[in-house]
Design a protein around this nucleic acid. Sequence first.
DNA 1: TCTTACACATA
DNA 2: ATATGTGTAAG
Length: 511
Amino acid sequence: VMANGGDPFAIPERMDTDTESPKENKPENHTSSSSPPSPETSCTQQGMEGIKVYLHERELWEKFHEVGTEMIITKAGRRMFPCYKVKVTGLNPKAKYILLMDIVPADDHRYKFADNKWSVTGKAEPAMPGRLYVHPDSPATGSHWTRQLVSFQKLKLTNNHLDPFGHIILNSMHKYQPRLHIVKADEYNRFGSKNTAFCTHVFSETAFIAVTSYQNHKITQLKIENNPFAKGFRGSDDMELHRMAKIQGKEYPVVPRSSVRQRVCPSGSPFGGEARGLGLHPYSCENGVSSTTQDLLILPPAPYTLPQPDTHEHMQVYHCNKRKADDSCPTAENHQYRKPYIVSSPSNDESYYQPSAYPHPPLPPSVHPPPPGLSDSPYRSEAGQRQACMFAGSEPRLDNLSCTSWSYSCPLTPPMAPMTPTDPYTTFPHQPYSSSPRNTQLSSIAHQGSHPLGDSLSHGQTQSSRPHQTPQHPSPPLTEYHHYPSSPSPPQYHTLHTHVRGGVSEWSETT
DNA sequence: TCTTACACATA
DNA sequence: ATATGTGTAAG
């Protein structure tokens, strides 16, 4: 079965497309604009409407997408390549925003790579609470974000469900869809309150299958040819010979690595459109306004389609401390060639690994009132290296919990649960860095997001602007999510409702 | 499948 | 120079 149509990768249709119409010009540099990309979007409410987001190096992403993008996940955390970078326009120069990403399941299948192609092999593992990666510059003014490319190069992916670093946790052989959320910060530089405005942008060409080691040699070659850090494996000529020489003992591949070995891939990109998830298409962006951030998050998180219940994932927020503006992702452009983290105890790392430590499920760490914070970020720099992170979460044991139970039971509850100051969840693990309040909140958001999906969805929806895509199913938006519409339309935006759901409000109130 | 040490690369 | 990101080969 190739994936085709249905699933996974199959995708023939390309959706990508979208059009966009940006009124403005796009910045081209960054993004390649050739296509239609952009999310145009519209976010309606609260000043989010004129926001546009362009995927940087979209052409490179498309090259990978055509073959079936794979991203390595390791215990220590691995960066994504291509690097996720965007050009943002339309923000209020003086307003503060928090930019963050999450990576949600694109569908609920498990894949295998055999016979030189990807195919569905079963049902996906229950989704874990998703973690959020808050851009290290957050919160920052619209002017800051629009001034230059916003790079998420430091974001790392891991397969360690007990990851203590705040990296985004994914399951191997599962397909995912990265999403960007632009959230308007409140006066305290936080978000999460009931009417926080935000918008979500999804570029379907950034969907990928998480792997522990590359499956498709074509992908390996693309990585080697385009990632500066893999330059050592580029084959051309000399290097190869030299290497060989050194190696001597072994014969190694006579064939230069560069030589292509693979054969194959059918023409279409493996990933198909369907995955596209939400209605958003490719670039779609959706925006919503949202109600609380929660909602936002929520939306996003929700992975697949599915039944909502599951969706419950919570999200955890990961905030990188460092702030620098670095952005450099190594993109190789041209080459062608070839706390909530909960950590319960911040102090010892080990604790991280023990979920047990965490009492309850995760919850709503954030919920609380957040401190102020983001803005201050003293810690940021320091923390430095580690990226600290947080998330909300319950992560720890989710696994154990059956999804079901968890989802149902938790859904709303968590958020609501009050946290004590000392509550582990609320606190950040490592202080130095993570501490910022915002994290907290975010996390909360995340949490909520997850479950609520259903609900929230229903209410709100985020979905794409394009009508047709909307999900039909009663199910919430999430659902949609994975069903990505294949239609090509451009971006979509959705608007969320702002509703504050009971739940939401509740948690928000915790404050 | 996943993990690890390693040579090579960037920054 | 140190620190860190890459895919490989071997476990």
